[in-house]
Structures are given as C-alpha cells and as structure tokens.
Amino acid sequence: MAEITFYELPGCPFCAKVRSKLEELDLEYDSIEVPRAHGEREQVKEVSGQTGVPVLTDEAHGVEGMPESSDIVEYLEETYGSGAA
C-alpha cells in the first residue's frame, strides 16, 4: 500500500490535473474512485471534512485530507519535485 492516497472522480478535470502531477513525479499512490453523488462520498468526507474531490493524503508527511487541486499540485511539487530540499 502506497503512503499517498488520491481520492478522485473519473472525468473530473481537477482530478486529472493532480493525477498528471503524480505521474510526472513518478510517485506511487493508491487511487480511490469516489461515487458521483456527493451524498455517497462518506469515505472522502471522513478524511477531508467535505465531499469534493480531488483530495490527497500523504502518510509520510502527515497530510490528511488535503483538498483543492492547485494546493495539492503545489504541495507535491514542493515536497517531491524540484522544490524539494
């Protein structure tokens, strides 16, 4: 099991943006496809407090339920990409 978990919905352009960054950085991650209906997204609500996607968790760095594609992409770049120390 990977330390990064990515909650996504197929066809979601914001999710595709995050998935592209994960793949660009060659990161291992588990993908969890959430239901289309917001009311059925209990699993993502438990980790993030909301039902929107994308959401990312990263056990290696204590990130639990980060929402917002731009924030996730920035985090991944700073943590694993060229911004990493």
Rank of each mutant, 00 (worst) to 15 (best):
A2R: 08
A2I: 07
A2H: 06
A2M: 00
E3K: 13
I4G: 00
T5W: 05
F14I: 06
C15Y: 12
A16C: 00
K17M: 13
V18F: 11
R19D: 08
E24A: 11
D26A: 15
D26L: 14
D26R: 15
L27G: 09
S31I: 13
E33P: 10
P35T: 10
P35V: 12
R36L: 14
A37N: 12
A37H: 09
A37D: 15
H38S: 08
G39M: 08
G39N: 09
E40A: 14
R41D: 12
Q43P: 00
Q43T: 12
V44G: 02
V44T: 10
K45N: 09
P54K: 04
V55I: 12
L56F: 03
T57K: 06
D58R: 08
E59I: 04
H61Y: 08
G62L: 02
M66Y: 02
M66G: 01
P67N: 00
E68W: 09
E68I: 07
D71C: 09
I72T: 02
V73K: 00
E74F: 11
E74H: 12
Y75C: 05
Y75S: 01
L76Q: 05
E77L: 11
E77F: 08
E78I: 01
G81N: 04
S82C: 04
G83Q: 05
G83D: 01
